[in-house]
Write a protein that binds this DNA or RNA. Sequence first.
DNA 1: GACACGAACCAATTGCAAACTGGTTCAGGA
DNA 2: TCCTGAACCAGTTTGCAATTGGTTCGTGTC
Lengths: 258, 258
Amino acid sequence: MTGGETFADSSDFALRQMRVLLDQRSGSESSRQLPPERTLAAQLGVGRRTLRRALEVLEAEGHIWRHQGKGTFLGPRPLREEVNLAELARRTHPLEVMEARLEIEPALARLAALRASNGDIERLRHLAQKTESIADGDSDSRELWDGAFHRAIAEVAGNSLLFAFVDVVDRIRQDPTWRRLRERARTPGSQHGFVHQHHQVVAAIAARDAAAAEQAMRHHLEAVRTSVLRIMTQSSPLPTTAQAEPAERLISERSPVA
Amino acid sequence: MTGGETFADSSDFALRQMRVLLDQRSGSESSRQLPPERTLAAQLGVGRRTLRRALEVLEAEGHIWRHQGKGTFLGPRPLREEVNLAELARRTHPLEVMEARLEIEPALARLAALRASNGDIERLRHLAQKTESIADGDSDSRELWDGAFHRAIAEVAGNSLLFAFVDVVDRIRQDPTWRRLRERARTPGSQHGFVHQHHQVVAAIAARDAAAAEQAMRHHLEAVRTSVLRIMTQSSPLPTTAQAEPAERLISERSPVA
DNA sequence: GACACGAACCAATTGCAAACTGGTTCAGGA
DNA sequence: TCCTGAACCAGTTTGCAATTGGTTCGTGTC
């Protein structure tokens, strides 16, 4: 094509040409999608089968990724799938949620105490106040403000992964099926205790006392768990969509490579 | 319609008829999608506007949910959205991942020690052995087996929410962009240490020693973090897709209700 | 015989238009 | 005043054609 240069074979030629083309593309901010194989083969003056051998090498090296029906693209293959929230909500149950929260949220309170800006503390105090002022209001807005409070602490903790976890828990809690359970779990007395515990968490964070913040959050969540436990043992059946399936194994082993 | 019965108005009639229809539907395992409003209105012999008022009541009561273009459905509105993995991978970074793992995985090892069946222990031992036998193999399969090991512990811990978290972390670690970093982070020496630590975790779980399992896992992850830290401070720039955006706030306040 | 080319076919995805469905507005009638 | 009918808007699904990577086969060239 370019002149008198010779190659071991046509495959070698196609591979070299493709590397040049990839360098040009990756340099500019152009489209990450390459032309279709048929076009590319015609442009390089080689057969499609030959071109595909070259593309296989480039894909194995991680320079491109391909997908049937989509096309050929520069760069690494994007992450697949997203976490299915509905499926997660279906196979968990309130006590499991509380167990998970007890493992994570105290740590988040500790990190928040170490990393909160003064503005963050202001916001947390405001949210705690909000949960107090509407303690007698409708349960919907009460739950939402409570969720906002816990999310805010996770946000202040400054770890996007841990925040994502709290976010997931919060969204599961918003499932309408779970709301009825929570309504029963919140007596005026326990609600008052929860509000007080919220303020204690904020106070510890404001004092930059990491250990106290962790302890206060743990104390709060244990109170919530006790409340949930009390309701669930009062012979009240779980809502259908929230029944646990603890025996079911989520994955087997997922054999890597071969 | 049915005879000489009289109703306060047409709206009342439509609402009562719809409640009857809902009871019939929810009793049988029939489709959860109701006929379109136009059909329903014709069947009941009322106007569409009247029918819609009845549907609004039923929706507010939580018996049905509607969505433009989709239809009207029985039961509670399904949870919205799923967690976007790619977005999460984009805005996190290796040290943040290690911080999150250090908060969660030791707790999972503790729970695993309390809940593992003998078969589970067998499987964990096998996986630990696997990471050892291919310590000198290709880094791809090594990483996959390591991921399988940590996932298995999360699975044995028996909390589907915490398992989902480890699952997310594992998938993020599979991002091709992160692999290059990990390859550099694993010297033969550190790799040998990691394998030994894996066995220590399994031994503690097998001995049902919850505190020891938690401590062993923490020790292991701290070693991994040290390794990551060493690499990242060697003036090696982060891959482009893994750059942190710590300053960016994920949410503001998400005002609940009104 | 080994390799490359061309053609054809399969399978997954995209794009688009039509049909469908809930959301809304408006004029007319009991 | 309330209900009906019609029309229109907006979001969704469905079916179909075109596109694209994945694969197989026959032919030609060295």
